Each structure stands twice: as C-alpha cells, then as structure tokens.
Computed example of a mutant assay.
Amino acid sequence: MGEPKEQPFLDDPEDEAMEFDLDAAMEEEPDAEDDAPSPAVEAIVAERDELRDRLMRSLAEAENVRKRAARDRVEAEQYGGSKLARDLLPVYDNLKRALDAVSEGQDAIAEGIQLTLKELASVFEKHGVKIVSPAEGDRFDPQMHQAMFEAPLPGTKAGDVIQVMSEGFVLHDRLLRPAQVGVSSTPAS
C-alpha cells in the first residue's frame, strides 16, 4: 500500500489553483463592457449575506432562550411550592376551627393550637404565602374575595363584606384561594 496523499489546504502556497483572493476580486475594476461583478463574486456575496442572516437569527434565538430560561427559573423559585401551599391551607383552616371550638378551662390546648397556628403562618410568610383576611365593612373585591351569599343588612352599603367565612391566601402575587365572604345587598337609600 502506498502512503496517503496529503490534502491541499487553501492557505498552502503551493496550491495556487485552489486559492481565491476575495479582496483582490472585489478591487478589480470591471471591464468597460461588463459593469456587473463576476458570477463567482455574486455567489460569494450571496452566501455571505445568507450566513450573516443565519448567524443573526441564531444569536437572537439564543438570547431569547436565555431570557426564557431566566424567567422560568424565577417563576419556579417563586411558584414551585404552590401545590404544597394549597395542600396546607386546609390544615390552617382546621387549626382555626379547633381554636374557635376550644371551651373555657382548656387553656393549655388553646395555647398549643395558637402556637401551632402561629408557626404555620410564619412558615407561610417565609415562603411568600400571605393571608387575605378582609374585615367586616371592607369593600368586596372580586379579585381577592369569593361571595358565598348576599343579604340585606341595615347600616351597610351594597358591596360591603358583612361576614368572613374563611380567609384567603396569595403566593407572592398569585391568588391561591379567595377569601370566602358574605356581601351586603342593601339597596342605596
């Protein structure tokens, strides 16, 4: 077997047939009869323009992917625990009910429930869960409250909260659960 042939490189000075000097080709003055650049130059310029366009599109796509990944990462950090938080909301509600049901003389039980409730609220706050607790007389906000019933109540205006059945919760700026309230339907005088 013979030795393998070496492949010529474009910058190899011995292989002048394969070299093409683009700068020289661009500087050449066209003949008086032929004002248009040669087909080889046109093909190279067209290929350059196509490659430049593809490069710019690829760079733009890479930047969009980077921005989307950063946005997704922030969203996952902020809202990744929303399912767990939603699952813990009934625990909070049950502790509130238990505290309301404690009768007199059971101070130790009431204190234990209060401490547990306070610790749960602290964990919620640490992870961005805020309690939405409207007071009676506040205006009904359909973005944060869920009307469970409407009733006319003297001394109130239509759209006032007249009873709070359960508190609502938000995770950062997203509503996990609206506060459940009763709303006044008293007509204006």
Results as ranks from 00 to 15, higher is better:
residue 5 K to D: 12
residue 5 K to Y: 14
residue 6 E to H: 13
residue 6 E to C: 13
residue 7 Q to D: 14
residue 7 Q to M: 14
residue 7 Q to A: 15
residue 8 P to D: 11
residue 8 P to S: 12
residue 9 F to H: 15
residue 9 F to L: 15
residue 10 L to W: 14
residue 10 L to V: 15
residue 11 D to H: 11
residue 12 D to H: 08
residue 12 D to N: 09
residue 13 P to S: 09
residue 13 P to R: 07
residue 13 P to M: 08
residue 14 E to V: 11
residue 15 D to I: 13
residue 15 D to P: 09
residue 15 D to Y: 15
residue 15 D to A: 15
residue 15 D to R: 15
residue 16 E to Y: 14
residue 17 A to M: 11
residue 17 A to V: 15
residue 17 A to W: 13
residue 19 E to Y: 14
residue 21 D to S: 04
residue 22 L to G: 00
residue 22 L to I: 01
residue 23 D to W: 11
residue 23 D to Y: 13
residue 25 A to H: 04
residue 25 A to I: 02
residue 26 M to Y: 05
residue 27 E to D: 10
residue 27 E to G: 08
residue 28 E to S: 07
residue 28 E to H: 05
residue 28 E to G: 04
residue 29 E to N: 03
residue 30 P to H: 00
residue 31 D to V: 08
residue 31 D to K: 13
residue 31 D to T: 14
residue 32 A to E: 11
residue 33 E to Q: 08
residue 34 D to V: 11
residue 34 D to W: 08
residue 36 A to E: 10
residue 36 A to R: 08
residue 37 P to K: 01
residue 38 S to K: 03
residue 38 S to R: 02
residue 38 S to Q: 01
residue 38 S to H: 01
residue 39 P to C: 04
residue 41 V to S: 06
residue 42 E to T: 10
residue 43 A to T: 13
residue 44 I to C: 00
residue 45 V to T: 01
residue 45 V to W: 03
residue 46 A to F: 09
residue 46 A to L: 07
residue 47 E to K: 10
residue 48 R to T: 12
residue 48 R to M: 15
residue 48 R to D: 12
residue 48 R to K: 12
residue 49 D to S: 07
residue 51 L to S: 06
residue 51 L to F: 06
residue 53 D to T: 11
residue 54 R to T: 05
residue 54 R to H: 09
residue 54 R to N: 11
residue 55 L to V: 03
residue 55 L to R: 05
residue 55 L to H: 08
residue 56 M to A: 12
residue 58 S to K: 02
residue 58 S to Q: 05
residue 59 L to V: 03
residue 59 L to P: 00
residue 59 L to Y: 01
residue 60 A to Y: 03
residue 60 A to D: 05
residue 60 A to R: 07
residue 60 A to N: 06
residue 61 E to A: 10
residue 61 E to V: 02
residue 62 A to E: 04
residue 62 A to H: 01
residue 62 A to F: 01
residue 63 E to R: 11
residue 63 E to V: 04
residue 63 E to C: 04
residue 63 E to T: 04
residue 63 E to H: 06
residue 64 N to M: 10
residue 65 V to Y: 00
residue 66 R to Y: 03
residue 66 R to E: 01
residue 66 R to G: 01
residue 66 R to P: 02
residue 67 K to I: 04
residue 67 K to H: 10
residue 68 R to V: 02
residue 68 R to L: 02
residue 68 R to Y: 03
residue 68 R to I: 00
residue 69 A to I: 03
residue 69 A to W: 02
residue 70 A to I: 05
residue 70 A to M: 05
residue 70 A to L: 08
residue 71 R to E: 05
residue 71 R to C: 03
residue 71 R to H: 08
residue 72 D to Q: 09
